[in-house]
């Protein structure tokens, strides 16, 4: 199961990167970035998974004493938790820049931004 999820995450990373590299429209590049982001999160979460174990939250189902042998790794999950919110903030920032670029040139085609081309 975790191998399938890991492979999917890596393929999503590749898909997102391919989108970023090959698309012409800045809006689509941002969507590619969000796919790439989701892929990275899936990779991290699937690395945290241990076979046959359950979520790292103690309640009636998992008691304190048996926690070490019953739960999955909490650290990557904590990293992903913050990474998702950061990802949304970064997406908002990129969208703001896209909005400013659109107002300047009335287009988002990346070919038309050639000021720094050499």
């Amino acid at each position: 199961m975790e191998y399938v999820a890991l492979a999917t995450g890596l393929l999503l990373v590749l898909t997102g990167l391919w989108g970023i590299a090959s698309q012409r429209n800045i809006f689509r590049i941002i969507i590619g970035f969000s796919v790439f982001d989701t892929g990275l999160h899936v990779v991290l979460v699937s690395i945290a998974y241990l076979r046959g174990r359950t979520a790292p939250i103690l309640d009636e189902a998992v008691s304190k004493g048996q926690a070490v042998n019953r739960i999955v790794d909490p650290v990557p999950q904590a990293l992903v938790l913050t990474a998702i919110v950061i990802g949304v903030a970064i997406t908002a920032l990129m969208l703001t820049f896209a909005l400013k670029l659109y107002e300047k040139r009335k287009t988002l085609e990346i070919e038309s931004f050639e000021d720094l081309k050499w």
Partner: peptide, 21 residues
């Protein structure tokens, strides 16, 4: 892994939080 094992063993008693994340 070692760090996570420490968190899982000591965490609930040390901090009193049921959610290890």
């Amino acid at each position: 892994p070692r760090t996570s094992r420490y968190y899982a063993q000591k965490g609930p008693d040390e901090l009193g939080s049921a959610n290890l994340v």
